[in-house]
Each structure stands twice: as C-alpha cells, then as structure tokens.
Design a protein around this nucleic acid. Sequence first.
DNA 1: AATGCGTGGCG
DNA 2: TCGCCAAGCAT
Length: 321
Amino acid sequence: MTAPTKPQPQPQSPPPSPHSSPADGSADAPHGADLHSPVIDWFDEHARDLPWRRPEAGPWGVMVSEFMLQQTPVSRVLPVYEQWLARWPRPADLAAEAPGEAVRAWGRLGYPRRALRLHGAAVAITERHGGDVPTDHAQLLALPGIGEYTAAAVASFAYGQRHAVLDTNVRRVFARAVTGVRYPPNATTAAERKLARALLPQDESTAARWAAASMELGALVCTAKNEACQRCPIAAQCAWRLAGKPEHDGPPRRGQTYAGTDRQVRGKLLAVLREAHAPVPQSVLDRVWHEPVQRARALDGLVADGLVEPLPGGLYRLPLT
DNA sequence: AATGCGTGGCG
DNA sequence: TCGCCAAGCAT
C-alpha cells in the first residue's frame, strides 16, 4: 500500500484564508472551521457502536468507561465494563462494596490503582453528590482518579457540555492536521490547550460532537503508526500530509520498560491475591518472584498504595476497607 | 517536570 | 524477538 499522494516538494502553499466567510455561523475558529463539518460527518457514519456511547449508559457508564480506558485499549475494556455495570449499576452500589472487590473485578486491565480510585470516586459521589455523577467540571476534577482529561470527557460525553477534550488521540490529530508534525510533544503543552480551545465550536452540542469525533478520528484513522490518510475526511487540509509527512524530529518518546521492574512484580503479587478468596500467607507470595529485596519492595509498595491489606501472622488480602 | 504505575497484542 | 502502543493520573 503506497500513499495515494506522493509527497511533492512544496514550493509555497497558499495559506487558507483565515477570513473565510462564516456563512453558516460555524466558522468560529480561524483554523478549525473547515475541520468541524468533515470530521463530524465522518463520525456520524463511522463511529463505533460502543456501550458507553449508548443512551442507557448514562453518566455513570461514561465515567466508568473513562477510568477503564485510561491507557487501556477498547477491546480489553469491553468485557470488564459490561460486568462492572451489571454488578454496580449506580455509584452507590460500588460505594457499598469493599475496595478490594473493585480491585478484584478490575481483573487484568492493568494499573489497578484506577480501580481503587474509581471506588473512591463512587464513595465521594455517594457522600457529596447524592449518588449522582456531578455535572460540574470542577466537581468532577475533585474526584479521585479524575484529571483534566477525564473531567472534560465526562462533562462533554455524558452531559453534552462544551469542553476541550484533549487526549492522546486528539493531540495527535491536532499535531498533524494543524501543526504539521507527526507527533505531539511528550507532555501536553499550554500551546496545545490553547489550540484545542480555539478549535472548539461555539455551539455546545456541536462542541460535544466535535470532541467525540476528533477523538474517534485519532483512534481509527489518524493512528500513531500506519495512519490511514486515504480514509481521512480532512486529508486535503492536513498540514502534515501537505508538508510531505515529515518524520518526527524531536526527542524520542521514552518507552516504558516493564520486564524485570517492580511493576511486573506488583502485577504478579496482585494476580495471586485477586484469585484468592481467603488471606494468603507470605510464603505463597514469595513464590512469584525469586529476588527477595525487590519482592519485599513491591509488596510494601502495594500496601502503601492501599491495594493490599496486611494482616497479623504474615497474611495478606485485598483491602476490606 | 520527570517518574512510576499493568497488561497484552501486534508488526 | 522485542519495542511500541493503548481514551492518564498523582506526586
């Protein structure tokens, strides 16, 4: 599969007029006006039918999905999401459980601290918000496990509000389509936030559609590797493609090492505890890793994080409180 | 601002 | 095989 358009040396591309006439009133952002319609139309036709996008998911379903999707692919989230919502259909249902049950139900999604935080968020929602996922961005942001992205995502997807939803997909789409580079910076910059705000349609419901659509475009078409420009609704206006798709020049993105790290040991320890339904003796845990110093450090870390509860007599279990 | 934090699939 | 990647957050 060769690129349908060969990168030509660009003599000097005529800049698209920043003063295009807003005939339909949607041209509120200088760069973005010509992006909104194609991306949203594409979304209307190609969006995946995901359970947390259905009306019956509700704000709680949206929030649960956002926790699970932090750094974890959709395909692995789907089955756990269904079980989770069936078991805990409302925040108060989860809040009534022991936190260890949330960690157990999290299964092998990874980053199990998210399960603990989601449980903590359910408790806070039950105590402070009468059991309803708050609608206010600041109140969402105050919940454990919810940062800038997730607060904006819940407010936008669940409540249709107007927020810049800046995740890794959207950042990549903007980097390419607008800025003209292959990858966004390693960490989110103020310039990216400013751009995201500038590109946000004024109309609230259009802004919410745009947030979901631009994210989906990054997930399905404008992917990190093997981007599918031939299927992209804004390929004709994409600054990166028009520049001949130059390679990434900045510092290499640091890949997360895993083999032999504490993270791997923590994962093995927690896997044993998830499967057990009675307190586990230290001697059983000792078998998951040969090196005693690292093993002890990993276990201590899990206890410090509240993911494991130590009991008298060298026994361990998932946290009951 | 840079790190640590899981897991599995894919080229 | 192994490095890269997948809807981040907290410190």
